[in-house]
């Protein structure tokens, strides 16, 4: 038996058209979750099938692709997805944020500011920001239709009443273009400000939940907060142990079993660039 052969970028043309139409609707209604007929992909649900389907539908032979997971190009899943596209679409791949046309990501937005013309594709596990307040889709869809986002404010306020501050650290809900409440995917809230008025197009794919949503470039993305408790990002009181960067998101690495630890950049490309060009880093 000969092995089956696959189309450019794995998906068949009809599937791509269906996904492309969903992407256009998603861009036209920023933050709204467009249902789409998500396909079985050759990697499991939860491993980025939504992001992979979006990337496969937009990518062309001239594109340069970067794939990160947890900010890093060399984590297992990033390596796997990058290899997948190198194989099925023969595209050029890179680890450099600046060189990439399309960046597929899980859980981070690169530290290097994105530029006009770039597209960032987020892998999304649970697209519905209201899901943990209301498990039923029929209800949450109605809440979005009526712009009934009071329960989310109440939930955040309960945190404040209990802890003195909002205790949501990732997948922190945002309001897009003043209308839809949106889950930014499980990125740390540290990255939320990067979504606001970004010059890049931001696409979100949830394969298992069969939803696509988008933020066009130059669009308002506001993290929910209260006048007396404004939105704040995580601040690290130290710098990267490898490149010395401050004001970036750091990974905590355990170095022994006695409690010793070090902090290093989560964005490996950013860290490597700084290590390679220390003088530039000083200026940064």
């Amino acid at each position: 038996m000969s092995a089956p052969s696959y189309n450019f970028a794995y998906l068949d043309e009809q599937t791509k058209r269906m996904i492309r139409r969903a992407i256009l609707k998603a861009i036209a209604v920023p933050g709204y979750q467009v249902p789409f007929a998500s396909r079985e992909m050759p990697m499991p649900y939860g491993w980025g099938t939504g992001g992979v389907q979006i990337t496969a539908s937009i990518i062309g032979p001239k594109d340069v692709l970067k794939v990160i997971d947890q900010g890093s190009d060399d984590t297992t899943n990033a390596v796997s997805i990058r290899a997948f596209f190198a194989k099925v679409a023969s595209v050029a791949v890179t680890t450099r944020t600046r060189e990439a046309d399309i960046i597929q990501t899980r859980h981070r937005i690169p530290e290097t500011p994105l530029a006009e013309g770039q597209i960032i594709v987020f892998q999304v596990p649970i697209p519905e920001p209201l899901r943990f307040l209301e498990p039923r889709e029929t209800e949450t869809r109605l809440m979005h239709a009526l712009e009934d986002y009071g329960p989310m404010h109440i939930k955040l306020y309960e945190d404040i009443a209990r802890h003195g501050h909002i205790a949501t650290t990732y997948a922190y809900p945002v309001r897009v273009a003043g209308r839809y409440l949106m889950d930014p995917s499980p990125t740390p809230k540290f990255d939320n400000p990067k979504m606001h008025i970004s010059p890049a197009l931001q696409l979100f794919g949830a394969g298992r939940e069969k939803r696509i949503y988008a933020i066009p470039p130059n669009t308002e993305v506001v993290s929910l907060d209260f006048e007396d408790h404004p939105f704040e990002v995580q601040r690290f009181d130290r710098t990267c142990a490898l490149c010395g960067a401050a004001g970036v998101y750091l990974d905590e690495v355990l170095t022994d079993d006695k409690g010793a630890r070090m902090f290093v950049c989560s964005d490996t490309d950013h860290c490597e660039c700084r290590q390679a060009a220390p003088r530039l880093a000083e200026g940064a």
Binding site: K16, R20, I23, I27, I58, I59, L201, P216
Partner: peptide
Amino acid sequence: AQMTFRAVMNATA
């Protein structure tokens, strides 16, 4: 089709 779609997507975005 891919190139055309990208142009339409860029236009919509």
